[in-house]
């Protein structure tokens, strides 16, 4: 393994994580540190265990063995509250766009005036100002994903997990989402994102974690991993070979 970026921020680590179902090992990650200041992208083919790892990191799935460490301790519900996650298929409440944002702001106990101001600011951030009263379920794919990201950002997360947020989007919608992710990262939100898009990894990643068959096969600074992969698996994947 290569040298990783210096540790900062929320201190997200994995130790001896193992998850098996019906005799198949789905995840087997001995050691992983996700602490660089810029976005970390988890890269790999379908079935590599990327989304599963992301869910373990956020505490949505408990591994059979091992630990996810956050801020120096084992991940707890309180830690989860400092994180947010955006899913591949955005799950939006059957309410208006503004009500989706208000849902999380209300839970923070904010006053009506503050919530209103935050909603306006968030809608402007995502370019959805004119959609506030529209049903969230009637948004286009790109708009829906933008709203899902805005809702996640409304929780003021230290760490934002994104599970292939642009996999179903066209290039222009992808570009808008990537800009939102860059801005969030610049504001200090720790970004951990799953993708199988090598181009996206080049555009966004400060660090790369490359996975295959439930294992981390390579990790390090994005430029090093993408330009000079060490392992055969990473070389084949980055060369566009069919990796299973």
């Amino acid at each position: 393994m290569r040298d990783l970026a210096p540790e900062t921020g929320a201190g997200l680590k994995v130790r001896g994580l193992r998850l098996a179902r019906k005799g198949s090992v789905l995840l087997d990650v001995a050691e992983l540190r996700l602490d660089g200041p810029g976005p970390t992208l988890i890269l790999g083919p379908n079935g590599a265990g990327k989304s599963l790892l992301l869910r373990c990191l956020h505490g949505l799935i408990s591994a059979d063995q091992g630990q996810v460490l956050y801020r120096g301790g084992v991940l707890t519900a309180e830690h989860m509250a400092r994180q947010a996650m955006v899913f591949q298929q955005p799950v939006l409440l059957r309410r208006s766009v503004a009500a989706n944002l208000d849902f999380v702001l209300k839970r923070q106990g904010l006053s009506r005036e503050i919530r209103k101001a935050r909603i306006s600011a968030l809608l402007a951030e995502g370019g959805l100002q004119d959609k506030a009263r529209q049903s969230a379920r009637s948004l286009s794919g790109g708009e829906a994903q933008r709203l899902a990201i805005l809702r996640a950002l409304a929780t003021d997360p230290e760490t934002l997990f994104l599970d292939e947020p642009t996999s179903a989007l066209d290039p222009s919608a992808t570009q808008v989402i990537e800009q939102m992710i860059r801005r969030a990262s610049a504001r200090g939100v720790r970004i951990v994102m799953v993708t199988h898009d090598i181009g996206q990894a080049r555009r966004l990643a400060a660090d790369i974690v490359m996975m295959q068959g439930g294992r981390v096969v390579e990790q390090g600074a994005a430029k090093q991993v993408l330009d000079a992969p060490i392992t055969q698996a990473a070389r084949r994947y980055l060369a566009g070979g069919l990796v299973t």
Binding site: M80, A84, M85, V91, R107
Partner: peptide, 23 residues
Amino acid sequence: EYAEQLRSLGVSRLSSVPVLLWD
């Protein structure tokens, strides 16, 4: 459909009931 998203937003099973009924 909502399970993971609500858990991610810190909504417990019990407090998810009014959310689900409304939606």
